[in-house]
């Protein structure tokens, strides 16, 4: 068994004439003795020989034309600034810093997101994608818990949000109420711009 393992490790070296004379003799002796190794050797030898003779693929006729055109474009466009070579230690340090910032920012956004919308775990189907902080924010002095923001909503059920404000540019997936009322009372939106009050 160990001999078979050593044999299979040396097949390529034998084929590429990389074995010493003694190793070669040992290899050939085992090949004569072991049928499965002889079979394996024969298969790999045939495979390697075939690969050496495999027909080479060639470039298409338009290759040169396309290359010339791309080169012409290359000559017209100014070269991008090359990135300066940074030593591996600094690369690692920069990556660590970026990772830390990303994790911290992610946690902050996540906490703020959950706090702002008071999302419960079972409301994962509600997905809000804020596009910008609307300029419609009401100063805190006017209302402590009253905020308005502008959102793009994906697959959002209107009933999931208690205080829905103005809706615009919406595409509905399902509607149970008439869309005549603005905004509709119960609808699933594919996308919409909305001002939501919390």
């Amino acid at each position: 068994m160990a001999e078979c393992y050593n044999f299979s490790k040396k097949i390529s070296q034998y084929l590429d004439n990389e074995l010493s004379k003694a190793e070669k003799i040992q290899f050939e002796r085992h090949r004569e003795e072991c049928l499965s190794c002889r079979k394996k050797f024969s298969e790999i030898q045939t495979l390697v020989n075939y690969m050496h003779k495999m027909p080479a693929k060639k470039t298409s006729e338009s290759f040169n034309v396309v290359l010339r055109s791309r080169l012409r474009k290359e000559l017209k466009t100014p070269h991008k600034l090359s990135i300066p070579v940074i030593r591996p230690v600094w690369q690692l340090a920069t990556l660590c810093l970026i990772a830390c910032i990303s994790v911290y920012t992610g946690m902050f956004i996540d906490r703020k997101f959950i706090r702002t919308f008071n999302l419960k775990p079972d409301r994962t189907s509600v997905y809000l994608r804020p596009i910008r902080q609307a300029s419609l924010d009401i100063p805190k002095s006017d209302s402590k818990h009253f905020k308005m923001k502008n959102y793009v909503m994906d697959e959002l059920k209107l009933s999931d949000i208690a205080n829905m404000g103005r809706l615009s540019n919406y595409n509905t997936l399902q509607t149970t109420d008439s869309l005549n009322s603005n905004p509709p009372n119960t609808a699933t939106f594919q996308t919409a711009n909305a001002i939501v009050r919390f």
Partner: peptide
């Protein structure tokens, strides 16, 4: 190379 040939086979 040897391992690749064995795997290919």
């Amino acid at each position: 190379v040897n391992r690749a040939r064995l795997k290919l086979q």
